[in-house]
Write a protein that binds this DNA or RNA. Structure first.
Lengths: 204, 204
DNA sequence: TAAATAATGAACAATATGTTGTTTATTTAT
DNA sequence: ATAAATAAACAACATATTGTTCATTATTTA
């Protein structure tokens, strides 16, 4: 029962994906029609419906395909028992940036400019957050913390994604390891100290 | 030449806006049709086109109306000459959260869940960033900074917005001043120190 | 070579958009 | 109070897109 998938299916699906990614970059997800995709992929419009339910369905499948790879890359990073530790932040950031580098066009389509697809960003952020709380021990912190754990996690997730998007949008202005280092440093030691600026007195 | 606007126009526009905000919350921006708006506002579909070009036009006008108020609130915050100073971060955050509190339904429609409108978040982030760099003196930092200024700004903007959205989404889990204090503290002193956790050694 | 199945092409109903007239109702100015 | 101006309603239209159905053609697998 080792049934190979028909080559026609593979070929058609591939050209649909390719056309879709191109069109997202050119005119943005919302503006794309099925006919656009069919034209670009050089298939009949009906054939599209043979493989995908509709446009959101296609989007979802494409996103999950990309993000499962990202997740694999992130999962490999060693867990630190020190919650939200510096080294872990740095390692995860670097893993993410390196993975993105390998699929830069895709990520560009999904995350940059008007044409960005918000859903994708949200899914990425979830992956990052899940990783960050992996080593978190609830008994350890909650009682003594002056800072809300949820607030902290949200803060880490959103700043992480902000840096990632900035990095892609500006065409990798710094090497991945440099960004990872600076980011983890700012987050851990504070932006003033990290930037070498005298810190104000904390309340008189 | 003190020409008052026709009362009919005011009334019609008002009910269109109201209907629009309600519908965004109910089914999300993309799913709304002009007919939906017309039905809800109890006007003829044609009348819509008498006042707005199309759906994106309406959205844009609504967003700018809200955000100009936000901008006014933020502009009032005192500028600190210490770039990205703690007190300024805290003040701006508080101003933003208080303004949002007064228009919580609108902001909820725009920023939360599937129905969120990404454009709106981007515009808000721009307002915040513009404020943060207001007191920035380019001669002061750039040369000596170990941290990229652009990276730092992006970091501040995205984490700021992350906290704001988290706060709205979770139905104001903390009072505005508490959030502002915690946020500025984390950003300034680093998340580990702010959370009262021993800081790892910075490189051996 | 035959059976299975992917892809095509044409047609269809349903829905939404944006526009153009004409008519009715309301407001503003005389 | 009445007339002129104009907002709103109503109907009709061309256009575009979606998702589906069905018969036909082409390609692949057995």
């Amino acid at each position: 029962m080792n049934k190979k998938t028909d080559l026609r299916i593979v070929r058609t699906k591939q050209s649909i994906r390719k056309a879709f990614y191109e069109l997202i970059q050119e005119k943005g997800y919302e503006a794309i029609t099925i006919q656009d995709i069919a034209d670009r992929a050089m298939i009949n419009r009906n054939t599209f419906y043979l493989h995908y339910q509709n446009k959101p369905d296609l989007l979802d499948i494409c996103m999950n395909e990309l993000l499962s790879e990202l997740k694999d890359a992130v999962v490999l990073c060693p867990i630190s028992m020190n919650p939200f530790s510096i080294s872990m932040l740095e390692t995860v950031m670097q893993a993410v940036l390196e993975h993105i580098s390998l699929n830069i066009t895709f990520y560009h389509s999904m995350l940059i400019e008007e044409n960005r697809i918000y859903q994708f960003q949200a899914k990425m952020e979830t992956i990052v957050k899940d990783k960050l709380i992996e080593g978190w021990n609830p008994a350890q912190g909650n009682s003594t913390l002056a800072i809300s754990k949820e607030l902290l996690l949200e803060y880490l997730g959103s700043s992480f994604m902000g840096i990632v998007i900035w990095w892609i949008k500006n065409n990798k202005p710094l090497p991945a390891d440099e960004v990872s280092y600076q980011f983890s440093r700012i987050v851990a030691y504070g932006h003033l100290r990290a930037a070498g600026i005298a810190v104000e007195d904390e309340k008189k």
